[in-house]
């Protein structure tokens, strides 16, 4: 039976196609597009009492945000945080995945040890690290103090930023390792054999042979990690620093939450979400566009 026969031609075929697509459209419409349109609309209002009262303010919310030094800092911090997290996660995960691939025995245990942090919800990971690295209660902080590092992230911006980056990276390594490992495993054994016969060193084998070949997976991870850094790290901030000190950990997604649910202004939060959407959208576009040239999809 040909494809044409299944979908048919003419109006009936269209109806079948529509019926099959309807659930997807409905779900996307209700859960993605409708809220997106509402957010866009709400960005033009200042709201109170959980949105039960609102005042039209036009582009005021955007003007207020763009001229607010706090929000400017928030954008800068968000981008810096995302860059460090994405680079950090991938730079650490790649060698780990490779080592697990190369190791002769105990592979399963290494894999488990690497992947379990991912099984931990980021809230739990945050709580654990919060108490390990608490400025006055943490055992980790006490150790650091013995070598002269005052890791007081209540006080020092660098410490707070390091803390949230640490939690975010640690929590995301497992996810990356799974994909990288699967990608490396799927490469033909003959490739490795010929490389070994040619005397290619381990490091070169990883960087010059495997990385180009698993580049589609790396691109996928780049995008997933970016989304994670922008959106998935809310809980970490909420549990640990709360955006402090001085706003250096106040990433947009957290600031937005605070505006909406702590400060009871859904309008400004909606405007922030629109800005966030634009930023991430542009970033995705750039990533896809730029990395496409270097991504090898096979022939």
């Amino acid at each position: 039976m040909s494809t044409k026969a299944v979908y048919g031609g003419g109006p009936r075929g269209w109806l079948v196609a529509l019926a099959l697509l309807a659930p997807t459209f409905a779900a996307a419409g209700v859960f993605l597009y409708y809220p997106a349109v509402r957010a866009l609309e709400m960005g033009f209002y200042r709201t109170r009492f959980f949105g039960s009262q609102r005042t039209f303010v036009g582009l005021d919310n955007y003007a207020q945000l763009l001229t607010d030094p706090g929000f400017q800092l928030s954008v800068g911090v968000t981008v810096a945080f995302a860059a460090v997290v994405v680079v950090g996660v991938m730079a650490i995960s790649l060698p780990i995945a490779y080592w697990i691939h190369e190791v002769e025995s105990g592979t399963t245990y290494y894999m488990l040890a690497t992947i379990w942090p991912y099984a931990l919800p980021s809230t739990v990971a945050s709580v654990i690290l919060l108490y390990l690295l608490h400025p006055s209660l943490g055992i980790g902080t006490a150790w650091l103090a013995t070598i002269g590092i005052d890791f007081n992230w209540f006080r020092y911006g660098w410490a707070a930023f390091t803390l949230i980056t640490l939690v975010a990276v640690w929590n995301q390594i497992g996810y990356n390792v799974i994909f990288m490992l699967a990608a490396i495993h799927s490469l033909p054994e003959s490739l490795t054999e010929s490389a070994v016969l040619d005397g290619v060193s381990r490091t070169r084998r990883l960087l010059w042979i495997y990385v180009p070949l698993i580049s589609p997976t790396l691109l996928f991870l780049l995008i997933m990690n970016t989304i994670y850094a922008f959106f998935g790290t809310f809980a970490i901030i909420d549990i640990t620093t709360g955006g402090r000190p001085g706003g250096v950990t106040n990433i947009i997604i957290y600031d937005l939450y605070r505006n909406a649910f702590e400060f009871d202004n859904h309008g400004i939060a909606s405007a922030q979400s629109v800005i966030l959407f634009v930023v991430v959208g542009l970033l995705m576009f750039a990533q896809l566009k730029y990395t496409d040239r270097y991504t090898h999809y096979g022939t």
Binding site: T123, V124, Y131
Partner: peptide
Amino acid sequence: QTRRGFIGTTTAVGVGALAGCL
């Protein structure tokens, strides 16, 4: 059930064992 409430609950479930000393 705000977001924080949800997080609180998830966390409570996840680290129930830790709760005593926290």
